[in-house]
Design a protein around this nucleic acid. Structure first.
Length: 281
DNA sequence: ATGACGGGCCGAGCCCGA
């Protein structure tokens, strides 16, 4: 089962690339961020006619998240308020559309677009930290249902030095400050692990390259798009890849897709052997 | 060099992103 995340930076501008990538990769579920479109104008039909079901939570110009699925999704939840109906902070956050979740094959997939924060002195930085605190409450509410959890998206945080092209210069600044990192670590707790790091421990693997400063040409990037899995899913993870080539397209998003392959529902080894035996006849 | 680029927006400079 392939589950992917991609900050597309405008779903309407990226639609041709999005459709091409879906055709090539055939993910079961693609979670996109920065759709930048109000719900009535989401390019739903063009995806539906390619066999996908689409669930979106957007607004004009900024933010916006969506789920593009080959299978029907169950229990789609829009916004923080879907898990925290009585949390006043969660309701305040609803003016920025940054979170949508659903059940696919029994897995709770939470697609998020974490606020960027702008700079350490900005009130947007406070907003980012408060949003992460709210996300922590959101996941605690979700946990009461005992669903296997996959949370993925644009986290706008590099957790470690190996996730930044120039840690000496950038550590401590926006997306790499200790407060942001601690807030994210609290959200993850003991429950969630970054599946990319199960398969790759080296630096120089980025998911975002700044449009400015020749970030792509100089390969100056950050790894800020993550997929976190609970233990049960992690044990069935087969691979996690960054589709870097999409950043090299003409008129690219500044982010590349990240894809995890999970053996799900889990198939036992003896069942594999039986299937192989059948295939011989 | 947080300027550079790119997207959106009542339409051409400005806000925003990361």
């Amino acid at each position: 089962m392939l589950i992917a995340t991609w900050n597309v930076n405008s779903v309407r501008t990226r639609l041709p690339q999005l459709k091409e990538w879906l055709e090539e990769v055939q993910p079961d579920l693609l979670c996109i961020q920065e759709t930048k479109v109000a719900d009535p104008f989401f390019p739903r039909e063009e995806l539906v006619e390619n066999g996908y079901q689409v669930y979106f939570y957007g607004q004009k110009s900024y933010n916006g998240v969506a789920l593009i699925s080959r299978h029907p999704l169950r229990d789609v939840r829009y916004g923080m308020k879907a898990e925290l109906p009585k949390d006043s902070k969660a309701n305040d956050f609803e003016d920025q559309k940054r979170i949508i979740s659903a059940l696919v094959n029994g897995i709770r997939v939470v697609n998020i677009y974490v606020p960027n924060g702008s700079s350490l002195k900005s009130e947007k930085y406070t907003y980012k930290l408060e949003w992460l605190e709210c996300l922590d409450r959101y996941l605690k509410a979700q946990k009461t249902r005992d669903e296997p959890l996959c949370i993925l998206g644009d986290f706008n945080i590099a957790l470690e030095s190996r996730d930044i092209h120039n840690p000496e210069r950038l550590t401590g600044g926006i997306m790499a400050s200790s407060k942001e990192r601690e807030a994210l670590k609290k959200v993850l707790g003991e429950r969630l692990q970054d599946v990319f790091r199960i398969f790759e421990s080296e630096s120089q693997h980025w998911s975002w390259w700044d449009y400015r400063s020749g970030g792509w040409e100089r390969n100056r990037g950050w790894r800020i798009d993550h997929i976190y899995l609970c233990e049960e899913l992690l044990q069935n993870a087969k691979s996690c890849e960054i589709h870097k080539k999409m950043r090299g397209n003409i008129q690219p998003s500044d982010h590349a897709p990240v894809v995890v392959d999970i053996n799900w529902p889990p198939i036992e080894m003896d069942e594999f052997e039986e299937i192989d035996l059948f295939s011989q006849y």
